[in-house]
């Protein structure tokens, strides 16, 4: 059996951490993109679109992320769409993230005065122009803190990708545990790394929230 020194363990964990970071970034970038589209759809006057967004949000918020990941990974391959563990994890995390972001942003957008929409309309701005030049720049100020706060959930959510066999931090941890039989040590390292990833995010979120509240 191979001997693992502490340094070896940490080195292996850090290599896997890169994948955790990458998956988080992909999910967050994808989530923002999808959430922007869904936000535009929700605010559009076509009732069918906003009903769709409402159902979408309910479904993804109302079911466990793990089930969403299973369905992406096993479900899609059952209808003979081959999907890698990375793709399945990125896809399901993107959908999950977008559902929460849409809901967070909804609060920020709907509290803007109706007069902002009306003035824009009277000046001849289209719906998308109003969104781009008037609504989003204002909503972003209030949305930033809770969105970054939510990104902590995304980072922690990537741990579930271990279940479908994607080697990120958690999966690397259990593999190292199987090799070393030192669960306490290994998972302490794992936990510390997650904390180092998440703490700056939640700190930033709290900082921005305070700054925003102070400036109001």
């Amino acid at each position: 059996m191979i001997e693992f020194s502490n340094i070896d363990i940490i080195r292996n964990l850090l290599i896997a951490t890169q994948w955790t970071i990458l998956l988080s970034l992909a999910a967050f970038a994808g989530g923002i993109t999808v959430a922007l589209l869904l936000t535009a759809a929700r605010l559009n006057k076509t009732p069918l679109l906003s009903i769709f967004v409402r159902i979408y949000v309910e479904v993804f918020q109302g079911t466990p992320l793990l089930m969403q990941m299973f369905l992406c990974f096993f479900g899609l391959s059952m209808i003979s769409i081959e999907i890698s563990a990375w793709n399945a994890a990125a896809l399901s995390l993107t959908l999950f993230t977008s559902a929460f972001l849409v809901e967070i942003w909804r609060g920020c957008i709907d509290t803007l005065p109706k007069g902002q929409w009306e003035a824009s309309r009277c000046l001849g701005l289209s719906f998308l122009q109003t969104l781009r030049y008037i609504i989003l720049p204002q909503a972003i100020k209030t949305a930033l803190a809770p969105s970054i706060g939510f990104s902590v959930q995304v980072v922690k959510g990537t741990a579930l990708a271990s279940v479908i066999g994607f080697v990120e931090l958690t999966k690397a941890g259990s593999m190292l545990n199987n090799a070393t039989f030192e669960p306490f040590k290994v998972f302490t390292f794992v936990a510390i790394i997650y904390f180092i990833l998440c703490y700056p995010l939640s700190w930033t979120s709290k900082f921005l929230e305070k700054k925003f509240n102070a400036s109001r």
């Binding site: 007069g115 902002q116 009306e118 003035a119 009277c122 001849g124 289209s126 008037i134």
Partner: peptide, 18 residues
């Protein structure tokens, strides 16, 4: 409404500046 915006301007009670 967009075409009309070139002929009609509106001023509101609450200004509605951006």
């Amino acid at each position: 409404v967009k075409a009309l915006a070139k002929s009609v301007g509106m001023i509101f009670q609450n200004f509605n500046l951006f």
